[in-house]
Computed example of a mutant assay.
Amino acid sequence: MPETYIRTARPEDEEALGLLDRVTWSTLHSVQPSPQPPYDPFFSGRFGPRDHLVAEADGRVVGYIRLGFPTPLAVNAHVRQILGFVVAEEARGTGVGRALVRAAVQEARRQGARRITLRVLGHNTPARKLYEAEGFVIEGVLPGEFLLDGAYVDDVIMGQAL
């Protein structure tokens, strides 16, 4: 895998990010239905390019992480949450995911956040191991929160102080 560069997303990344989202979709990490045409735009009024860090290798987008607020409440504005995280199949196991998580933590700190949190499906062992290796701890579990592929799956809440 060529050297990976992490940067803030740009409007012209929209098509590549949307495609990456669609080709990597899986119930391992998504509770949303499988994307079907016509596809919604990747960027929205809620999440624009400024809310995404992109991993680029050889001029290609190979991953992204979305960082936002967990709620619109002012009393919760000191917290950032990872609200989306995808790595292209061919880039998995190469450090791209780790670089994106580290960049998200750094960006949350830069924004003045005091905490960063995320939610991960209980059966997504690779993601959970990565988060734990990067200092996230389990702060709560919602047992059997989702029914995916006929099985009940936990929703695991993880976080860390910044």
Rank of each mutant, 00 (worst) to 15 (best):
G97T: 06
R114K: 13
E107G: 05
L148Y: 09
L118V: 05
E89T: 12
V86G: 07
R98Y: 03
R119T: 13
V61W: 07
P41C: 03
V86C: 11
V96L: 12
I116A: 14
G159F: 06
Y5P: 00
A99G: 12
I138H: 03
V137I: 09
A91K: 08
M158E: 13
E132G: 04
P38V: 10
A133P: 00
L130N: 03
Q32E: 15
I82D: 06
E90M: 08
F43D: 09
G95N: 13
N124F: 02
H123N: 12
E89P: 00
E89R: 14
L162M: 08
A104P: 02
F43S: 07
L100E: 03
L67P: 02
P41S: 15
V79L: 11
Y5A: 14
A104E: 05
P11F: 03
A103T: 01
V62Y: 06
E145S: 13
A113Q: 10
P33M: 10
H123S: 08
A103Q: 01
A104S: 11
R50L: 10
A151F: 04
L20F: 05
F136R: 03
S30M: 13
A88E: 07
V156Q: 11
E15R: 15
N76V: 11
A103Y: 09
L121R: 06
A74G: 12
L73F: 15
A104D: 06
E3V: 03
A113S: 15
Y39P: 09
S34D: 14
I82K: 03
L67Y: 08
G68H: 01
A161V: 12
I116C: 08
G112V: 00
H52C: 12
L162P: 00
E107Q: 15
L147W: 03
D21E: 15
S44F: 07
G45V: 03
I6Q: 10
R66K: 12
S44K: 12
F146R: 02
I65Y: 00
P2C: 08
P41T: 13
Q106K: 13
R109W: 01
S30V: 01
V86R: 14
R98W: 02
P143H: 12
P49I: 06
G84W: 05
R66F: 02
D155G: 14
E107Y: 01
R98H: 12
T27Y: 13
P11W: 09
Q160I: 02
V23K: 09
T94N: 11
V87P: 08
L162A: 07
R109T: 01
N124G: 06
A91P: 07
G18T: 05
S26A: 13
T4I: 12
V120R: 02
V23Y: 06
R60Y: 02
Y131G: 06
E132K: 02
R115A: 13
V79F: 04
I6W: 09
L118T: 10
A104L: 04
V75I: 05
R110I: 01
D58Q: 10
P33F: 06
V105G: 11
G97Y: 07
A91C: 10
I82R: 02
A91M: 09
E132Q: 12
L28I: 08
I116F: 05
P49K: 04
F69A: 15
L73G: 03
A9M: 11
E134N: 04
I157D: 02
N76E: 15
A91T: 05
H123P: 04
A55C: 11
L118Q: 04
R109E: 14
Y131C: 08
A74W: 10
Q81A: 15
L121M: 07
P38I: 05
G112N: 07
V61G: 10
A151G: 01
T117L: 10
G48T: 04
